[in-house]
């Protein structure tokens, strides 16, 4: 396994654990209930005695802890209960693994897990913004998707990329629930997929990707809502037609193809103007494209983002 990040670069988990818990326990004791609530949205949760060496994202926000990232997961293939995914996913077999890449490409091929890990792995600290209104900062390892796509040589007719999660109901209890049209499908426009920010993640915090976070390989598209970042990918297909994601199939008026983080465009039923960073008490304003506007806004120039939500 490639591990490019020296362990010294990774924040000791103890620095992050239970900060939010302490805050909430204090806030709940009846006498301080309201006093604790006047806090401004952007103020740090506890007094800011953070060591200077603590790794941060480029907006100077600290990382979420390994414990937070691996115990609060939206992964409906296991369960809709975010806190239960980690427990249910322990017996998921993420090795051996095959990722089939095909469709409108000159050189379709099957990548074994070892082939994926043979791409130069790099660390990317990304914000993840869930459509439910919470966010985390996560240190991923992985490789840009464009490296893989270049190897299979997309044909000129290819315009979209369709991703598919493994269907293995015997190991994924949520997939036995036929209410959802499994397997999970997501899609990107080819230029989005080729963007350097678009990552195929194989690990986090210097460790192999845990099953609850989408092991062994998942997509991470940091400027889109979290559900676009499909987990446990087994198939990538380049297409001419726009793919229909699972959420688009289930609720077309609520989940568009693009799903770019956008505080100006409310979800049909709830506003996306603010979010809570996991570990903090207050709310912070949501940034256009989740703070990556400088890198990606030009992908959508001339497009009406209210229509293309």
């Amino acid at each position: 396994m490639t591990r490019l990040i020296p362990s010294s670069a990774i924040t000791p988990e103890s620095l992050y654990t239970r900060r939010g818990f302490l805050g909430i326990a204090g806030a709940l004791s009846a006498a301080t209930l309201l006093a604790a609530c006047g806090r401004r949205a952007t103020e740090p949760t506890l007094s800011g005695e953070q060591p200077a060496s603590e790794p941060r994202d480029e907006l100077d926000d600290p990382l979420n802890s390994f414990e937070q990232i691996t115990n609060y997961n939206n992964y409906y293939e296991f369960t809709t209960d975010k806190q239960e995914v980690a427990r249910l996913a322990t017996s998921f077999r993420s090795s051996p693994w095959e990722l089939e890449v095909g469709g409108l490409v000159a050189r379709p091929r099957i990548f074994a897990l070892e082939d994926l890990l043979a791409f130069p792995q790099e660390e990317r600290i990304y914000r993840l913004r869930c459509v439910e209104g919470w966010s985390m900062v996560i240190p991923w390892q992985g490789f840009p998707l464009h490296q893989l796509l270049r190897m299979v040589e997309p044909l000129p007719t290819a315009r979209y990329v369709r991703f598919e999660t493994i269907f293995r109901p015997e190991e994924m209890p949520g997939q036995r629930d036929r209410y959802y049209p499994w397997p999970y499908i997501e899609g990107l426009r080819l230029d989005e997929a080729m963007h350097d920010l678009t990552l195929m993640a194989t690990g986090l915090y210097g460790r192999t990707l845990p099953p609850q976070n989408g092991a062994p390989v998942r997509l991470v598209v940091p400027w889109k809502y979290g559900f676009k970042s499909i987990k446990a990918v087994v198939r990538i297909e380049l297409t001419e037609q726009i793919p229909t994601s699972l959420w688009m199939a289930m609720a077309p008026h609520e989940y568009g193809f693009y799903a770019n983080v956008n505080p100006e465009v409310a979800h049909p039923r709830w506003s996306q103007a603010s979010e809570r960073r996991i570990g903090e008490l207050g709310r912070r304003p949501t940034l256009p494209f989740n703070g990556y506007a400088d890198e990606v806004a030009m992908l959508y120039s001339g497009m009406d983002l209210r229509r293309n939500f």
Binding site: R18, G20, A25, L28, N64, Q68, Y72, K82, W134, I278
Partner: peptide, 18 residues
Amino acid sequence: LLIDSLLGRLSVNPIQDL
């Protein structure tokens, strides 16, 4: 709820949990 709040067992998103 009270026990979980005091023991810090309200998930990593405690306000949403409450």
